[in-house]
Design a protein around this nucleic acid. Structure first.
Length: 259
DNA sequence: ATGGCCAATTTTATTGGA
């Protein structure tokens, strides 16, 4: 089973490219977690995904944020509200249960430099998400697929010196995500590719993608016995290295499980 | 690849993204 995470930066602007990408891969993705769909539920292009064989669970909002999970199998259960103020005030989280596994599409706050409102909001959001996850049953199979807006280590940025103490590389941001990882999660890409510098996001400006000046901030984490079932992990550069249609600034990350 | 960031809205500027 292949699970993918893709921050599309507007599903309306990206629909054509996402469809092209899925078809190019012969629709080998079983579960596609989307972030930054930037639209309300009613405006999500359900039908376009249906014609490719996917059913979509959506938690959207106007203009900003918004997440979805499109899967070949209809989920047994969908959660859109998490009964925590920090996790519900913006649409950054949706969870579906497929084959007894809880799969989350995650869009962590971007944040800001130290001292700014959005810096503190990111910290509060991570605390709330960690606390929420700690309340889940220990043995539960969980996959977290999304844009976490943190580069875990210096290996995950193109220039650690230049990018030291910037958004996504600050120690406290890394600790916030590491806290979650340390709850028993495995970084699927790093598990398979121990030393490879590969990125999932590149700035639109300056032709960053062509110079490979990027960061790895999109992840698929898994816990429970899923960690022993990771078969392959991949970052697919194809959708990012298009000129037309205009790509997202992110590219999809994929993990394959022996399930 | 041969450039000079992109998307949505509050729209001809501003905000957010990272």
């Amino acid at each position: 089973m292949k699970i993918a995470s893709y921050n599309v930066n507007s599903i309306k602007s990206r629909l054509g490219l996402v469809v092209q990408w899925l078809q190019r891969r012969s629709c080998d993705i079983d579960v596609l977690c989307l972030q930054e769909i930037k639209t309300v539920d009613e405006a999500f292009p359900y039908k376009d995904f249906e014609s490719l064989g996917y059913v979509c669970a959506v938690s959207g909002q106007k203009a900003y944020n918004g997440v979805a999970v499109c899967s070949k199998v209809r989920p047994e259960h969908v959660v859109r509200e998490f009964d925590v103020a920090e996790l519900d005030e913006q649409k950054r989280l949706i969870a579906v249960t497929i084959g007894g596994i809880d799969i989350y599409s995650v869009y962590a706050p971007h944040g800001d430099l130290r001292g700014m409102d959005k810096y503190y909001y990111k910290q509060r959001w991570y605390e709330a998400f960690k606390a929420y996850l700690s309340r889940q049953p220990e043995q539960r199979g969980i996959v977290l697929a999304g844009d976490f807006n943190v580069a875990l280590t210096d290996m995950d940025v193109y220039d650690p010196v230049l990018l030291k103490d910037t958004i996504g590389t600050m120690d406290e941001e890394r600790l916030a995500l590491m806290d979650i990882v340390n709850m028993g999660f495995t970084d699927t890409f790093r598990h398979i590719h121990k030393e490879e510098r590969q990125f999932s996001w590149w700035d639109y400006s300056g032709g960053a993608v062509w110079k490979d000046e990027g960061m790895r901030i999109d992840y698929i984490f898994c816990k429970g016995n899923l960690s022993e079932k990771i078969k392959e992990a991949e970052i697919d550069l194809w959708p990012r290295r298009r000129r037309t249609p205009t790509p997202s600034d992110h590219t999809p990350v994929i993990a394959e499980f022996v399930i």
